[in-house]
Computed example of a mutant assay.
Amino acid sequence: MRGRLLENFGLKVTAVIMAIILWFFVISKGQSEISINVPMELKNIPQGLESIKHGVKSVNVSLKGQDRILRNMKPSDVRVHVDLSKAKKGKGIYYINKDDVEIPPTINIIGITPSSVWIVLEETIIKTVPVHAIRAGSPKEGFVVSSVEVLPKELAIEGVRTETGKVKFLRTEPVDISDADKTFTQTVRIDTAGRDIRTDMQEVSVKVVIKKSSKFEIKN
């Protein structure tokens, strides 16, 4: 029995090697590689914190798979998540591994660049500030603005401490009073002046009281 196993042993080994090579050839046939730039997404940010800076906005993911599948892939088919569930306030380094990348089945990840990213988290605060109405133009000749009332008078704002802490008040978008000769109320949007803050309301009501100027009043 043993003699039969050893008979033509060299040819048998060669046949096995050729079979393995053929198997790899069949498996690899039609395989190709691509690289896709994917936006980096942050998830599980701890409550009371938010991201203000990070080292990169996108991650390059190298993939390998069937050529016909890769040809039809779009960046939206791949997602990269950075888990911040254990993050703390300040600057930290967070690693990106294969478990953080969502890809279609049958596709393999062969590279992620960069493999780590720095992210700065800052404390979120909420505070209440007054709202000031901004006027544009002038009333009709013979009339004056008696008073301006904003409702609500105050709004809650939310954002990171370094940004929100600088805000002393909010302004409205300009209220046009050109040629006005009577009291009116207008709904206008809040102007955040490009600051990275959030408000509990996007619009307020502004009441402009217009009265006749005393200079033009007719005395009996």
Score class of each variant (00 low, 15 high):
1 M>N: 01
1 M>E: 02
1 M>T: 01
1 M>L: 05
2 R>E: 01
5 L>M: 03
7 E>H: 07
7 E>P: 00
8 N>R: 12
10 G>T: 01
10 G>C: 00
11 L>T: 04
14 T>G: 12
17 I>S: 11
19 A>D: 04
21 I>Q: 09
23 W>R: 03
26 V>R: 02
26 V>L: 14
26 V>Q: 07
27 I>V: 14
29 K>V: 10
30 G>P: 10
31 Q>M: 15
31 Q>E: 11
36 I>A: 02
36 I>M: 13
38 V>L: 05
41 E>F: 14
43 K>A: 13
45 I>N: 05
46 P>T: 13
47 Q>G: 02
47 Q>I: 15
48 G>V: 12
50 E>M: 14
50 E>W: 08
50 E>V: 04
55 G>P: 05
55 G>N: 02
56 V>H: 04
58 S>G: 05
58 S>L: 07
63 L>G: 01
70 L>S: 04
71 R>A: 11
72 N>D: 11
73 M>W: 05
77 D>G: 01
79 R>H: 06
79 R>T: 13
79 R>Y: 13
80 V>Y: 03
80 V>T: 01
81 H>E: 14
84 L>S: 07
87 A>D: 13
88 K>L: 15
89 K>H: 08
90 G>H: 14
91 K>C: 02
91 K>W: 11
93 I>R: 13
94 Y>Q: 04
96 I>E: 04
98 K>E: 13
101 V>L: 01
101 V>M: 00
103 I>P: 01
106 T>C: 00
107 I>W: 00
108 N>G: 02
111 G>P: 06
114 P>L: 03
114 P>A: 00
114 P>C: 07
115 S>R: 07
118 W>Q: 03
119 I>P: 00
120 V>M: 12
120 V>D: 09
121 L>K: 03
124 T>L: 15
127 K>I: 04
129 V>K: 07
132 H>E: 08
134 I>H: 11
134 I>R: 15
136 A>Y: 09
137 G>H: 10
140 K>G: 03
140 K>T: 01
141 E>N: 06
145 V>F: 04
146 S>C: 01
150 V>S: 01
151 L>R: 12
155 L>F: 07
156 A>F: 09
159 G>V: 10
159 G>D: 07
160 V>M: 12
164 T>V: 15
172 T>M: 08
175 V>W: 09
180 A>D: 08
183 T>E: 07
185 T>C: 04
186 Q>I: 12
186 Q>Y: 04
187 T>F: 01
188 V>K: 08
189 R>K: 10
192 T>Y: 09
192 T>Q: 07
193 A>L: 10
194 G>P: 02
194 G>N: 05
195 R>P: 00
197 I>A: 05
197 I>F: 11
199 T>K: 09
199 T>W: 05
200 D>P: 00
202 Q>F: 12
204 V>A: 08
211 K>A: 08
211 K>N: 08
214 S>T: 11
216 F>K: 12
217 E>L: 14
217 E>D: 14
218 I>F: 09
219 K>L: 12
